[in-house]
Nucleic acid binder design. Structure first.
Lengths: 112, 112
DNA sequence: AAAATATACCTCAGATTCTGATGTATCAAG
DNA sequence: CTTGATACATCAGAATCTGAGGTATATTTT
């Protein structure tokens, strides 16, 4: 993850939210979606993405389904019920983080 | 740093901004200030704070001045010119991060 | 006066998360 | 037939944090 730095810990929140919104996605698709949504300003590093997906799956927040696409493979990820609950927590934590930053860094910040 | 999680990377931004606003502070004072400002919701972990202060000093973003307070020592930190420039960058990155999260996570988030 | 809490600094092992490089393989386009 | 896109992956090393522990002085409570 790079270019206009993300704070460590935010990647999993993005993954969960993308899957919550789009139902089912594969890793590479996520990198493209984020590029597209941020006009190339934000790039998900695949070296961070794939391990993160594996971890979320191991934690039972995602399920995976391997689907052949032509002669290649795609691993489609979907969010589980547990994952949906975790998404709520993650978003609440992010809001809390932003509120604290607003308090600590002053009103100039974050109102952009 | 804990309790209502901060994202990794935000601690140095907080330190720089506190010093920019308050002119001169020592480590322990920063932990108390953050507690006070966030009504105890956010606690800076000293195990993260002190190494961060040492690193910022090593990078030339802060200067330190050891001052006896009674029979104890305080290490007062001040921000350098270089540190002020870096603060501008850090705040811009934070705003950028928040804007990207707004785009990726939807309008419900971040608007409180 | 003794014990507990607050002030004030610090280190260190281990965990987490990320970067950047590298690797494999298929597919489309020029 | 090579370049670039698609699609997955791993790994060494860096950065940052948590949680625990340590030293010492000062103040407050019992």
């Amino acid at each position: 993850m790079n270019k206009s730095q993300l704070y460590k810990g935010s990647l999993t929140t993005i993954i969960l939210k993308l899957l919550e919104e789009n139902g089912r996605m594969y890793g590479y698709e996520m990198t493209q979606k984020v590029r597209e949504m941020t006009s190339d300003e934000l790039t998900i590093n695949e070296g961070a993405l794939y391990p993160a997906l594996h971890k979320l799956e191991a934690e039972g927040l995602l399920t995976v389904e391997v689907v052949p696409a032509g002669n290649r493979l795609r691993k489609y990820y979907s969010i589980t019920l547990k994952g949906q609950a975790e998404t709520v927590n993650r978003l609440a934590e992010l809001e809390s983080f932003i509120e604290h930053m607003r308090i600590l860094l002053g009103p100039k910040v974050i109102l952009g």
